[in-house]
Design a protein around this nucleic acid. Sequence first.
DNA 1: GGGCGCATACTAATTAATTAGTATTAACGA
DNA 2: TCGTTAATACTAATTAATTAGTATGCGCCC
Lengths: 125, 125
Amino acid sequence: MRPKSDTLTGQELELMKVIWRTGRATVREVYEDLKTRRTIAYTSVQTMMNVLESKGHLRKEPGDRAQTYVPVRPQQTVVRSMVREFVDRVFDGSARPLLVHLLKEKGLTAAERKELQKLLDKEGE
Amino acid sequence: MRPKSDTLTGQELELMKVIWRTGRATVREVYEDLKTRRTIAYTSVQTMMNVLESKGHLRKEPGDRAQTYVPVRPQQTVVRSMVREFVDRVFDGSARPLLVHLLKEKGLTAAERKELQKLLDKEGE
DNA sequence: GGGCGCATACTAATTAATTAGTATTAACGA
DNA sequence: TCGTTAATACTAATTAATTAGTATGCGCCC
């Protein structure tokens, strides 16, 4: 039996990303966005958005013609909890090995390195 | 319908962690380890280990009395792919925001900071 | 040999999320 | 008003992983 996910699942996150990007959206708007990338039924989007609402991630507001769905929490907050859950699950709560992993991977620009250096220099920030 | 997971699911990861820790294990050994932490049936462990075998994460070897399961890939390799999948999924492939997230969280010791500084200083490592 | 415990193979049920169709109502434009 | 499109409510089916039981075979010890 499938355990409940503490954090956003794959599809839930896809939908939330669309809505976070625009700030608020109707089912139709999310559907139009997603269908540019893949085949999905309008009613699938509708269902998922209602699931997200019932889970407390979205709030419904009356719109001109269609209900508008608004995120309950900012993206950063939600992503933060997802990062925490990932670190707990995969690294037993310690961020250090994850940081080491990421820094050892090529892909950071010089500017990004500088920025990260700054963050590392700040004590207790 | 549940999409297939590209990476280890929650329970799969729990089992793999036990086996990575010991290097190889029988169903019984994994079962004894897990049951110290939670209620689970021996046959549940058995099933999951066979699932992991069929998925290519474990290899069966004949043992003295019980078959021994051996990881096919080292933990680091598997964890690396899980990190990649996470970054792709949550951060659209860019490690930078995840690094910023992690560095802004309190929790790193001075020694850890020093270590990370070193990694940042290394060009193209 | 027999009883008991363990290992293995097989089978079945459950779950949450995912996918999407149908029916009905509402809105819009001619 | 009517026809068409869109929105909403509701319903149903599917999926992969998870949980675990049953039946049988094997090993050990008395």
